[in-house]
Design a protein around this nucleic acid. Structure first.
Lengths: 155, 155
DNA sequence: TCCTTAATAAGAATGATTATTATTTAGTTT
DNA sequence: AAACTAAATAATAATCATTCTTATTAAGGA
């Protein structure tokens, strides 16, 4: 039962080890486990969710470690912060270029992958302001599930 | 000295009055003043900045009123929250379609206006997820001012 | 194995935002 | 124009995500 998914996760963790060494950072079990949780989830978890999941395996882990580690993983571009205009930050470990659909009703975050020929153009004027690091496209609306629930209520 | 800018601000406040009545909301001096502050600024102020500015004219205004009013102005699409991945929310009353350049060094927010022939395309798959309300393009990087400062330090 | 120092756990502190409650007032009705 | 009523407000307490402090632990090199 060593599925493709598990094999891929192992590869990603190896990459984390490499990156840590490269940046002179220690490879701690907390770092591994916290990264695992984000990398293995499609739910764009927030810090608290990660904390709860990690606590299952490491009951003594502290909230602070989770926040600190998420921040350092972000610094080394291993994970990204999903822009959600909400008080809780949410994280994503998927490095394939994609954007997000954010439901304003239920706050669910959906991944929008671009088709192979597709590319979001930068505004022509963007470069005038400085050196661009990344572009973040957030599409807000009401997701199908919530639209359906609205309809059901009306009947 | 009744400049164009002042005239335009008056028009916008009239629009606010109309919108409030339309939505059955009361037109209070606090609402007018808070909206004025956001509408009259190009700085994408945060709640505290708005609060300080409003306090000049209305010394008894409360923080809570500022937060509550900013939220209701947002609900009625009179102002928008600028996505900045920072703890303090910042607001923008400019309804002409534009995006933002956010400096990761100094947290300054710059407006990126599209040229007349320009339009940011939605990802083809975006509509699959639900009903789209708005699209938010945030470009993060280091602004010219901070780049310059970096150069100066190196010498 | 020892040593150095980065990383951690625990819990206190911070800071932005929101809730509570008594009071005021906008806008309507008399 | 006075009275009414619910929405909005001021004041302050509370909340909640996140960060800081400090003593302790452990990763990785010597």
């Amino acid at each position: 039962m060593n599925s493709d998914k598990e094999k891929m996760l192992e590869e990603r963790i190896d990459f984390l080890r490499t990156m840590c060494k490269l940046k002179g950072m220690r490879v701690t079990p907390q770092r591994i486990e916290i990264y695992k949780q984000v990398a293995n989830s499609c739910e764009h978890p927030d810090a608290e969710t990660v904390y709860e999941a990690v606590k299952e395996k490491m009951p003594n882990v502290s909230v602070d470690t989770v926040y600190r580690t998420l921040a350092s993983l972000e610094d080394m571009d291993m994970i990204f912060r999903v822009d959600n205009q909400l008080p809780k930050a949410r994280f994503d470990a998927d490095k394939t270029p994609h954007h997000h659909f954010l439901c304003v009703k239920c706050n669910e975050v959906y991944d929008i992958f671009l088709e192979s020929d597709e590319k979001i153009e930068l505004p022509k004027n963007a470069e005038r302001f400085g050196e661009i690091k990344d572009i973040n496209v957030q599409i807000r609306g009401i997701c199908n599930k919530c639209l359906q629930e609205q309809k059901n209520k009306q009947n």
